[in-house]
């Protein structure tokens, strides 16, 4: 594991902790998109289907469990918690997130490593994660002034993506197997995108 990957994981973890802190401390989820949170829960549930079949490391396993549990807890709070759910900006959070799920599913069916249940859902989770932030960004724009913790949540989420991209660039130049794999995926995705256009 390189330093970019670790920094990415940590900023990802911090973003989730900031979000939990905001909901817990203010008993409010205003400014947070339930659509985005549900998409992230779906991302983790579909990506970590390998939790019981492939072991990578204790670190990976614990982080996977933390991501699944925390994303489900956030969705639970926003939907079920007696106080928290009242502060949800339902009328502003109207992004049609089903289209994002549909687009990710179609892309996963077209571009994947193997045509197996696990691989299709793994590819689906990768595409969906790239799109899942959209409802949150739309809500952010609509709600105008945003509280500090919500702003910091989105900032750390962005930092996580930035560090992961640096990690991929680093791995591209240092791991031959990785760069070949990325090259194949990238070509396949571009082919599909151009075919669509």
């Amino acid at each position: 594991m390189n330093i970019f990957r670790f920094a990415g994981d940590m900023t990802h973890l911090i973003s989730i902790l900031v979000l939990l802190l905001k909901i817990y401390a203010t008993k409010s989820c205003s400014g947070i998109s339930l659509k985005t949170q549900e998409l992230y829960a779906l991302v983790f549930l579909t990506r970590y289907l390998d939790l019981f079949t492939d072991f990578i490391s204790v670190y990976n396993t614990i982080m996977k469990l933390v991501f699944i549990a925390s994303s489900l807890a956030i969705v639970w709070c926003m939907r079920m918690h007696r106080v928290v759910r009242r502060s949800y900006d339902k009328d502003l959070d109207t992004f049609r997130h089903y289209f994002l799920i549909l687009a990710s599913l179609i892309l996963a069916l077209l571009v994947h490593e193997k045509f197996t249940f696990q691989e299709i859902f793994w590819a689906f989770s990768i595409y969906l994660e790239a799109l899942a932030i959209l409802p949150q960004l739309v809500l952010l724009q609509r709600s105008g002034n945003v509280d500090n913790l919500t702003g910091q949540y989105v900032f750390f989420l962005g930092a996580y993506r930035a560090f992961y991209i640096l990690n991929w660039i680093y791995r591209y130049f240092t791991e031959q197997r990785f760069s070949r794999w990325i090259g194949e995926r990238l070509r396949a995705v571009l082919l599909v995108v151009f075919a669509y256009l």
Partner: peptide, 10 residues
């Protein structure tokens, strides 16, 4: 495992 790439990430 034959498949490489991003599977060892989160």
């Amino acid at each position: 495992a034959e498949s490489s790439g991003l599977k060892d990430e989160l």
